[in-house]
Amino acid sequence: MRIIACIKQVPDSEAKVKAEDGKVSWGDAPLVINPFDEYAVEGALQQKEALGGTVTALCIGPESARDALKHALAMGADDAVLVSDAALAEIDTVGAARVLAAAINKIGGADMVVFGRQTLDNGSGLTPAQTARVLGWPMLGLAGQIKVQDGSVTVDRVIEEGRQTVSAKLPAVLSVVQSIGEPRYPSFMGIRKASKAEIPVWSLSDVNETAPAPVVTRIELMNPPTQEREVEMITGESPAEIAEKLADKIFAEKVL
């Protein structure tokens, strides 16, 4: 099995992110592997363990994104590829999907490409299905469980209404959710291996793509309105008294 896990680098979820001078600022918070993509790496590694083969971590991003790829290597990925090009600074998800598909082809294809559910920064969750469409491969989204047998993959899809079991022939594109299992911590050996790894950096021309012109563009950044109301603490002698006062407050808000 040749498995590719697509990952992105994003500011840590604890970061105080805000709009500042028309740019997104996250202060000195660290950049980390997108948390959802840790599940993608975990899902990919589980399949490698079950079936043998290799896991390649793939990322489009600036040079700094090497660190996110190193995290995937430390978790147990066999190798990593960074696609980095100044022309990719403003790509939208369709553009990212085209470039990922081109990189997947250049890697030599795969039996399975595993994505996270969505990125923390852009958060659209569009890229997996768009990459599948560009490749012409089946899309199995939001997998909470993956099973490969006889050239087919079956997933339990976690959707609003419950769980749906869906299968397709390989090669296929998958995205995974948290039910896949907690991402493993990098092992000591893994960290050592990752720190020594040479990560190839491909430009757009290396993957035979031209710069995709973004169709979706940002025209303004804003900070959400700040909460102007203070919390009102409800106190009383007994739970019953507190409950009575709280119930009155809730009624007065007309939300029931």
Binding site: P11, S13, K16, V17, K18, A19, V24, D92, T93, V94, L120, D121, N122, G123, S124, G125, L126, P214, V215, V216, R218, I219, E220, L221, M222, N223, P224
Partner: peptide, 30 residues
């Protein structure tokens, strides 16, 4: 392209402008 999870639409001349949350809603973009 797709504009996801749009909280608000407005027209800027002929163009539709969408407001949506990014960075887990810590920032909004048009």
């Amino acid at each position: 392209g797709v504009l996801t999870d749009v909280a608000k639409f407005e027209m800027n001349g002929e163009q539709l402008v969408a407001t949506r949350p990014i960075y887990e809603g810590k920032v909004l973009e048009k």
